[in-house]
Design a protein around this nucleic acid. Structure first.
Lengths: 113, 113
DNA sequence: TCCTCGCATAGATGACTGTCGATGTCAGTC
DNA sequence: GACTGACATCGACAGTCATCTATGCGAGGA
């Protein structure tokens, strides 16, 4: 399944029960968020002025090895939360705001009137 | 850490980088959402008219065993997404709307003006 | 009291995953 | 071309997890 499709066609959790296929796609994205290091990476990228971050800026912020950071970046990219672009020797990662918006919409719960 | 504290004191991902402690708490909640069965369970409870669901109503909706469902319910309860109450022979689970709201706020990304 | 039903807990197991060191690849430099 | 630096990939390993069967526990009924 394409990364962008993981969250498509899934209604808010509180509107109707998710079917197995929808749940599988959404779970993949949440699973990517279910690791402290990945959450911090995403937060660094999302909050960075300019919108993009070089991998070297991320690696320095953690106690884990460079291959581990690379692995986590790959996971976040595969589920569609990040995109990357190589310029010269460096690789820059950017947030996909729509992905977070879709997730946020999924979690939306109607006000208890 | 208390379930209710897992999401406390964590700014939106896009506002500032999460520290290790915040990330650990938030990741625990997202990890709970990172399983298709748990997502469907949560969706069943959240979308059910009346707001609460008997365990027996959940078990019947899946191909997995009753202990497995019980395990997933426990995970969702431990991170503060669900609460349970026993009445007579049955146990009823209810959604904690505030938990979903907090998560939704975490994922909020400022509009690109 | 014993039985049945609804649900939770315990223990086991196969699969997955986060992490590492080693190595490969790509781009720029000497 | 050879070297260096930035990043990705590979293979291995220890820890975690989803699932199962078997069993325990509370509540109601015969």
């Amino acid at each position: 399944m394409e990364p962008l499709e993981l969250l498509e066609c899934s209604p808010p959790l509180a509107r109707e029960p998710l079917n197995a296929e929808q749940a599988a796609g959404v779970a993949q994205v949440f699973k990517a968020l279910g690791d402290p290091v990945r959450l911090r990476i995403l937060s660094i990228v999302a909050s960075h002025a300019g919108g993009e971050v070089c991998v070297c800026d991320i690696t320095g912020a953690f106690d884990v090895s460079q291959p581990t950071i690379s692995h986590h970046l790959k996971v976040l990219k595969e589920v569609g939360l990040l995109v990357s672009e190589r310029r010269a020797s460096w690789v820059y990662y950017r947030l996909v705001p729509e992905a977070l918006s879709e997730l946020s919409a999924l979690l939306n719960v109607p006000a208890t009137v």
